[in-house]
Write a protein that binds this DNA or RNA. Structure first.
Lengths: 201, 201
DNA sequence: GTCAATAGTGACACTGAGTATCAGTTTAGC
DNA sequence: GCTAAACTGATACTCAGTGTCACTATTGAC
């Protein structure tokens, strides 16, 4: 009995989740991620610990679920990519909508990245999240773009592309947003671009 | 008062650690990593829970510390690498001693990889371990091999190289050791090699 | 061989994340 | 308004990981 594709309950759930996360984020920034317990968060949000826990799969998710859409964004970008050149450039292009997504509210994203990079538990989970995107990206890339010889080649290229993104993001946040994220991603990608020959000293 | 570089106590500690890990590994394989508690391990090894815990930084470390030497192995390989061509091929060569290390006891390593890959918590920590090797590798590479333009380029190349290794290792274990690990690493590396131009369709 | 410093041990208590259950309440949709 | 479903808070629980403390064993120096 799924009454409608987007039920009223789902909307409510989303909104509550966002509000809980908002309050929690302030607590984390003020006191430190590890110092704040779920009991603290329950108190700060006026909801019971049980209820708070039901809205998130784990403590890191309270911060990181903001970045959940990125995985699907990449998939969609690859799916709607008309050009059919090599997969490496397709992967680069697929990151453009991600950059757009992050640039919608630079200061908010930067605040999140600050908290993430200064909290080992959060950075570790953030990397895990990015890792979890990979299989779907590999599948999509094999479907829409000339799948190369072996599966391992595609897997490695996707992994490398995601690492390029991660490295660019890290430098971007270190520069406090002064450097251009797109340019940084370009630099990362060209450091590995298998379609251009770099002269060996 | 450090009496000698390698004290008797350090040797004992190492040996005890190895023995505890050996027994624990059997328990993990028999019952499943998540199902076995530290209390169980204490019982199986005949040592108290407190003592067992003192030998490892966390539960995953009981399994994964076997792979600790790999980080240093890579560093040493880079340091003693005479050739000074591009950093990408230097990184590839630095993995040869790692392959040697893994091939010393193929069946043991394979048993470990089986447990790791079937246990999400272990694979996640395994990736974290590999991630932790990166900064030192970057530093060593910048010292000994023609450091390229920007720091981000080296960082990306090291990250990509480690992902090549990880991908090759995963395929190797899936093949149950039938495929050649060195060849798989070669394939991975050439999928990204920035020194050879691949034709674009 | 004795002895003092140091390290290892087991017992215990504790925090905090995450899971599970359950009775009571709210809400959606007919 | 009614019913089935979802949401809530309370409670109890498991287990990883930390910290402390008294006790024992070992080491290295004398």
């Amino acid at each position: 009995m799924p009454p409608s594709p987007v039920s009223v309950r789902a909307i409510s759930r989303h909104a509550v989740r966002a509000e809980l996360a908002r309050v929690a984020f302030n607590e984390f920034c003020a006191t430190g991620f590890n110092q704040v317990t779920f009991a603290d968060l329950a108190g700060a949000t006026g909801v019971s610990r049980s209820t708070f826990l039901r809205y998130f799969t784990n403590k890191e998710d309270v911060v990181l679920f903001l970045f959940d859409p990125i995985g699907d964004t990449i998939i969609e970008a690859l799916a709607s990519d008309a050009r059919s050149d090599d997969d490496w450039h397709a992967l680069r292009r697929a990151l453009n909508p991600v950059v757009d997504f992050l640039m919608r509210d630079t200061s908010e994203v930067m605040a999140f990245l600050d908290l993430i990079y200064e909290t080992p538990a959060l950075s570790a989970r953030f990397r895990e999240k990015q890792f979890d995107w990979r299989p779907n990206i590999v599948r999509q890339l094999q479907r829409t773009h000339a799948a190369p010889d072996a599966s391992i080649v595609t897997q490695v290229r996707v992994a490398a592309a995601m690492e390029c993104f991660a490295a660019a993001l890290a430098v971007w946040r270190e520069s406090e947003g002064r450097e251009d994220l797109s340019t940084l991603i370009d630099t990362s990608f060209s450091a590995l671009d298998p379609t251009i020959a770099i002269q060996t000293s």
